[in-house]
Design a protein around this nucleic acid. Structure first.
Lengths: 106, 106
DNA sequence: GATTCGTTTAGCATCTTGGCTAAATGAGCT
DNA sequence: AGCTCATTTAGCCAAGATGCTAAACGAATC
């Protein structure tokens, strides 16, 4: 029965990888906070304007965030809207929760 | 009054930086889990033996973990013991908790 | 004091990341 | 169709991360 869950475990591992990778950079963490406090969605331009680095650089950070699933994007007219997926942060909390379960006694 | 807390905020920022940087690598996350499930402390050798990469490589990962504060180390005889500091993981949860507070209405 | 054991440091090669500018794309407007 | 606006892709370079092997170090042991 537990075998039935192994694919999920593999996916969780990949998710952890992608999410922690995305969170590794200060600007990307910052983008997430900005998105959150501005109501959860903003256009690429609204985001880029808040950052000191160049637009293409921010654009690439956004791409990493999308790949991690922390953010989704949708074309709207000629703009592109980025939306925070707060649910996805559960990948982080599920990982940290391992440390609340009892360790094996060596 | 809030000014009195700014240094703390700066330190928290640096902590977040160091901790998320440490967590960005799969092996380092793995080390933390091994430490936890083996009772919270292990010698460098016990850790290195569980990993496929070379000893010096693992040693460097341990250094990054120590710098982040997630792990502390202590010399014991001719071994070196690494201990998990679970408290330090609160840096992560404090960061994710930002997303549970109300966003500003755009 | 020489040796051995456990571990880290040095030094090197390779890959990835993060930044830039310039060019391309895609959607709406005239 | 041609133009403009919003954004991304391409291409480049500098800096940093990760892996290795070989050498160094420090503490115990002979």
């Amino acid at each position: 029965m537990s075998e039935r869950h192994e694919p999920d475990a593999a996916r969780e591992l990949a998710d952890v990888e992608a999410v922690f990778h995305a969170l590794a950079h200060r600007s990307r963490r910052h983008v997430l906070l900005v998105l959150h406090f501005r109501g959860g969605e903003l256009t690429a331009g609204q985001i880029a304007r808040r950052f000191s680095c160049s637009w293409p650089t921010t654009s690439r950070h956004l791409k990493v965030l999308v790949e991690s699933g922390l953010v989704t994007s949708e074309r709207r007219g000629r703009e592109r809207v980025y939306r925070l997926d707060r649910e996805r942060l559960a990948v982080v909390t599920r990982w940290t929760d391992w440390f609340d379960v009892a360790p094996l006694k060596a």
